[in-house]
């Protein structure tokens, strides 16, 4: 009986090796199957933390973020040490960052920070908080969060540059109210801005000309249908261009982080 028990334990260890090999070879579907098989047969629950953690990682790699969070939470429940607990909580934060539930990620960062057991891990918490801010498109807050780790942190520069490269949506709209087309020019859309200005000048001339020639009704109709249409269009365009420009700037930085950044990513 004793021999059988030891043999069974060997089988479980072999099974764990098999699952880990599949995981290392990025065969995540098969890895999950084998981890689940191990979990089912491991009645002593010896590997419960490792299994749930790895299954979570597999689901995360397969972009099944809800499932990943579920298994990381199970890992958290089965954690035997503070380190294991911290690691599983950090994985939940990283998964929340990836699935764009940044508010939840930030909330979890705050909770971790308040936990005295993890006082020595503030840097890591701030690092992931910075990433959560990046995915929330709040580059200024991200820069501040990275600065808490190290004033020369390489991501501070990127976050600051991104924030600086962005345009103000309000400013783009306001200058379009004053001079139609100016907002588009401010966001770098010169041709569209000049066209907008031209249409406004022409339709404005027609409106005023109609009033000058005592064709009041013509003036009202052209002013309302043509001039105001172009005037409103210029303001709306300025707003849209500013949003597009900011999105482009953010995406460029995110592409850099995805393809060229060498540090740990969510």
């Amino acid at each position: 009986m004793f021999v059988f028990s030891v043999k069974a334990q060997d089988h479980l260890s072999i099974q764990l090796d098999l699952a880990n090999n599949l995981f290392n070879n990025k065969q995540y579907y098969d890895a999950i199957t084998e981890y689940k098989r191990l979990q089912f047969f491991d009645s002593t629950k010896t590997f419960n933390y490792e299994i749930n953690y790895k299954i979570g990682e597999c689901y995360k790699a397969g972009a099944k973020y809800d499932d990943a969070v579920k298994y990381f939470s199970l890992a958290e429940l089965n954690a035997r040490t503070d380190n294991e607990l911290f690691d599983s909580k950090i994985q939940i934060i990283r998964t929340n960052i990836l699935r764009r539930t940044s508010d939840r990620a930030l909330q979890l960062c705050d909770e971790l920070e308040k936990d005295e057991r993890f006082n020595g891990k503030r840097d890591e918490i701030n690092y992931w908080r910075g990433w959560a801010f990046i995915f929330a498109d709040n580059w200024d807050a991200a820069a501040k969060s990275f600065a808490k780790i190290n004033s020369n942190h390489e991501l501070i520069k990127l976050a600051e540059q991104t924030e600086k490269a962005k345009v103000s949506v309000t400013f783009a709209k306001v200058i379009s109210y004053i001079l139609p087309g100016a907002g588009a020019i401010y966001t770098g859309n010169f041709l569209s801005g000049l066209m907008s200005l031209g249409w406004n000048l022409l339709s404005g001339y027609w409106t005023i000309n109609s009033f000058v020639e005592n064709r009041v009704f013509d003036g009202i109709v052209v002013g309302e249908l043509v001039w105001l249409r172009f005037y409103r269009g210029a303001i709306q365009n300025a707003e849209e261009f500013a949003f597009e420009k900011n999105l482009e700037v953010s995406n460029k930085s995110l592409r850099y982080l995805q393809n060229e950044y060498k540090g740990i990513k969510p």
């Binding site: 009986m1 059988f4 028990s5 089988h11 099974q15 689940k36 191990l38 089912f40 047969f41």
Partner: peptide, 24 residues
Amino acid sequence: PLTTANCQLTTDGNILSFQNRLRF
């Protein structure tokens, strides 16, 4: 405790046996 441990496994101890596959 040693003998009851891993009681999920059937007597052959092979996780991939057909019976164990069915149970899993």
